Simulated scan of single mutants.
Amino acid sequence: MMTDRLVDVGGYALHARVQGSGPAVVLDGGGAGQGLGTWGPVPEGLAEFATVVTYDRAGVGRSGGTQAGSVVDMADDLRRLLRALDLDLPAVLVGWSYGGLVTQVYAARHPEDVAGLVLVDPTAAGTPPGSAVVRSSSFVLAAWLLRARAALGGRNARPLRELAVTLRGMPDAMAETARIREEHGLPPVPVRVITAGRRPRMPRAQLEHLTADHEALAALSPRGRVLVAEHASHQVPHDQPEVVLDAVGEVLRG
């Protein structure tokens, strides 16, 4: 059974979908936070043994409000959503890409809600290597290009504008997540960090930074482990969904 709901989280509503039955598993999507319809076959596969929640973040997709200015705001929105859904907590949180930042902050601030973490090729926290000026300029330029493409119209115009907002705030989000992780750590629950096995060409220092962050994430839990999706690009839920399904099942059993 699948139900879609607009759930009031305090002045605006988030669009959420609940399906399946069993222990709770919450999916937080990448990019701008459009969770519904972006996970490929993963939600349906998980629904065979879990109650699965997917949602769009504030200001994205069919959700109301405006796009949050901080990762803490996004995590707090998710917490209000799960309580409004009367979900049986603690839950396994699954964060893909930027969603990995949101779920880390949620787990660090509200460990009592979290039974386990599966981080799917998560965005690296902290400060990437290289020039701060070049790094900041690249995010500004990427956001500008997305807005320019959105100005041409078409059905992807709104998602492009939403993604532009996310990219513009990416350096702050990465720094915020690193700070909260350092202050609070992660709860001692099972943690699986899935890293993509097929990377696009990138500077060696950048790749080493990403790899080191994934390893550091797993090391924050005594029950943490890095898994490599050998045949997947960053689009792990589409390229190798079975790796996500297996990791969630393993965490639930743990």
Rank of each mutant, 00 (worst) to 15 (best):
M2V: 14
L6F: 06
A16W: 03
V18F: 08
G20D: 07
V25N: 07
L27C: 05
D28N: 07
G35S: 08
L36P: 08
G40E: 11
L46R: 15
L46W: 15
V52D: 12
A58W: 12
G59I: 14
G64K: 02
G65C: 10
V71P: 04
D73M: 09
D76A: 14
D86Q: 10
D88E: 12
L89E: 09
A91M: 09
L93T: 02
W96K: 10
S97Q: 14
Y98R: 13
P111Q: 03
P111W: 01
L119Y: 04
V120P: 09
T123A: 14
A132E: 14
A132D: 11
V133F: 04
R135K: 06
S136Q: 13
A142S: 10
R147H: 03
A148V: 02
R149G: 05
L152Y: 00
G153S: 00
G154F: 01
L163R: 14
L167E: 06
A173T: 12
E182M: 10
H184A: 13
P187Q: 05
P187R: 01
P187N: 06
V189D: 03
P190F: 01
T195N: 06
G197K: 02
R198G: 00
R201F: 02
A205I: 00
T211K: 09
S221V: 02
G224D: 06
G224H: 05
R225I: 10
A229G: 13
A232H: 05
A232P: 09
S233I: 00
V236P: 05
V251E: 15
